[in-house]
Design a binder for these strands. Sequence first.
RNA 1: GCUCGAGUGGCGGAAUUGGUAGACGCGCUGGAUUCAAAAUCCAGUUCUUUCGGGAGUGUGGGUUCGAUUCCCACCUCGAGUACCA
Length: 931
Amino acid sequence: MSIFAMQNKNIMDYNFVEVEKKWRKEWAENKTYQTSIKLDQPKCYVLDMFPYPSGAGLHVGHPLGYIASDIYARFKKLKGYNVLHPMGYDAFGLPAEQYAIQTGQHPKVTTDENLERYREQLDKIGFSFDWDREVRTCDPNYYKWTQWIFAQLFKSWFNNQSQKAESIDHLIMIFENEGNASVDAACAETPIFSAQEWSSKSEKEQSDILLNYRLAYLSESMVNWCPGLGTVLANDEVINGLSERGGHPVERKLMLQWSLRISAYAERLLQGLEEIDWTDSLKEMQRNWIGKSTGASLKFNIKHSTLNLEVFTTRPDTVFGVSFMVIAPEHEYVEQLTSDEQKAAVEKYVLAAKNKSERERMADVKNVTGVFTGAYAIHPFTGKELPIWIGDYVLAGYGTGAVMAVAAHDSRDYAFAKQFNLPILPVIEGGNIEKEAYETKSGKVINSDFLNGLKVKQAVKTAIWKIETEGLGEGKTNYRLRDAIFGRQRYWGEPIPMFFENGIPRLLDESKYPLTLPEVDEYLPTEDGDPPLGRAKDWKPENGDHYELSTMPGWAGSSWYYLRYMDPKNDGTFASREATDYWNQVDLYIGGTEHATGHLLYARFWCKVLFDLGHISFDEPFKKLINQGMILGTSAIAYRVNDTNKFVSKGLKDKYQTTPIHVDVNLVKNDELDLEAFKAWRPEFVDAEFEVEDGKFLCDEEVEKMSKRWFNVVNPDDIVLEHGADVLRLYEMFLGPLEQAKPWSTKGIDGVSRFIRKFWNLYHNSEGVFNIIDEKPSKEELKVLHTLIKKVQEDIENFSFNTSVSAFMVCVNELQKLKCNKRAVLKDLAIVVSSYAPFITEELWSLMGEKGSVTHASFPELNASFLVEDSHIYPVSFNGKMRFKLELPVSMNKKEIEEVVLQHEDAQKWLNGQNPKKVIVVPKRIINIVL
RNA sequence: GCUCGAGUGGCGGAAUUGGUAGACGCGCUGGAUUCAAAAUCCAGUUCUUUCGGGAGUGUGGGUUCGAUUCCCACCUCGAGUACCA
């Protein structure tokens, strides 16, 4: 072929570069994806978890969920829904601030740069986002409303009777009229006071009491202090005693902190899970995190003391098996209970426990430690004396910080008893207490007075009944969920709209929001140890001493952003009631599972509060949620012969002593290393030598997290550049089920590229000229088309995007075989493919002379009559093994089929003269002959 | 330890309520085209075989005419959680 002809051939091929560029521009200019409220249309809200724009940009794993949700959103649009599909940025965060500390550059500058790069990358992939609705959490017009929501939390308390948030003004009224005796609230321990006592309290005293009730409150509490980051962290930001970001050690510290009373909502957060369509694993994670357990609280008197020790137990049925008590080293009675003889030992133990970091304490789980206080509790039923010990396996923060130890039926108590030679009293039949604790929840109770002979379940009820009637305690439910610390000693976050006046925290008037982030000279704590906001000059409230210097945590802005998308420019409210009523809950939310116990719990919490206060009409934010699996990196490994600069292909590595070296995956294609590119990659490899096999240098593979460190990061831009955005979209879906974690590998991408070309060629003749005809389609062609229509709509509703791509390939292969270029078929085909591959289909749509964007077309109606077959190819099995196939008309009944099959010569061969015991015929499925 | 999820060719993965295991794609093999290569097209590709078959969806049992699918026990991997009384 001449050079001219070759160029000509290239022109004929689908030019994705030009086509994609053209439509990107058109869509942006025409605002093709702009959305507005349309009351006559059903709505559908499709949301992605919004990204934190890191400096590294997007890698190929990030868009996976965005592509899936985009396909869903586009499909719903074609199906006649009014679809809200927005995108924005969680733009406050530590990395930008760390960078600011190092460089002195304002975090806003870096954040904006990163945002721009993200936007550029996202735009290339052809998402149908309505960018007019973009939100950024660091935008004052946005965080104005984050501050406003904080104010609502501050102005509310949780009424346990009504199980909802109510106005604090109403609570103050109750206090003024009757005191707090009748108030059943989710609150910190507060002494009972009368109306009169309330009015005689000082303003500061009243303020302090109200903080015990408010949903946003300031309290002296044990926090996860991270010296490495200079800030406190929420429980879900601490992993194995180290900070989630940066991996710095975390210690326990008592600090005055803003917290949110999420624990008040524990039961509703748990119950709400029943109504929402999330994966079981995610719901399970939230259930575990909330950690509900039921049992009883029980008071033990203390010998020679007026004190009593309250414990929480889930096994009141084993109360007669209690042989000692254990309290946490931080327990408030430690000092009072300790006898003179034990004083030295206790002090030493408590001090040691206090100085252990979270991490050390966790690492030490297997070491059983403890010390005797010298005091004894009195068993409420038997009157027996029970020694009171201190042990750090008992946690101060859970239950009452004290346990009744039932060594025979609890493995931790058992280990403690063994260690210190304490008695072990079995009270449930069975088990072998010589060997281990018997933790069964079935079985019969023994050695237990009035509980004898009862089954465990019954005994639990009876024990609680007895405990309650004797006034020893009560049935009780406990939750593991802790309140969420809401302040960070950091710069780059939303200022908390509070100021202090004579030590009293006051809410900044809502008319003054947003309280904007002040400028500071350095993004570091002050010399007095105040947070960076302490550096701001002239940053003072009008009539107070100073503003709150902490900022909000990273999850503040992301706890309600889905509401702002509904009405992003509203300056009078966080989102109009019209908008929140219309768009309502998020119908489909796609994101990673890493937010299970953080963002997803906080967002549900805020939603419930806003609902309780009457600001929105629903109390669960995300109706359906899907977790996309992580895309892992496939690292490329080259083997270097030790102490040389010589590399050997993977098949030859056993001939030498070698070290595996990570090689940039972008230098490797189908395991083969581009040697020239490799030499140019880094100076130390310039004169590397290679031993090849079959003329190729092959690398090994290793699947690990996608990270710069392993040189296995693949950038979506590069894929778009080489193959086009449609191919990237299709290929990411084709990789496998959305929810599954999978390694990225470009091995199969050529197959998808080929498909796009074949698809294009259906609409073009062999000269590359657009060519479709208006002839009536054949029955067969319609069957192929409608098989696809059925498959794709089922797949999308089931979020099985990978199988749709296969279906496209099958359909295009078959239409190619049928040489079909009929408009009636190809027009519908373009619509069906368009949600997956928007660029090429938009181009074909316009080539077909259609007006407007394919986005606004209607998904073709499935006509099932095209799928009806008049014959079926039956697999004929003998004893369940398929032996031959036989085509029979579907009109045949079972009996006729049986006769025909048994007469068939292939059947005769397998029957071999025998009479079949049984013949099973399942119409339109199989025939099985049992010998 | 506990909870949840997953194990299918050389690879990514298909398989409605139990009904032809391996769709589709990659890779590989052979062929066509080409001076040659790329690209493209066609055929083949689970293993095994004495070419009749036989075995086969992590392992071992079970239910069934029939099991990747349901039940029991176990193994491996991944995720979450971790003294929560």
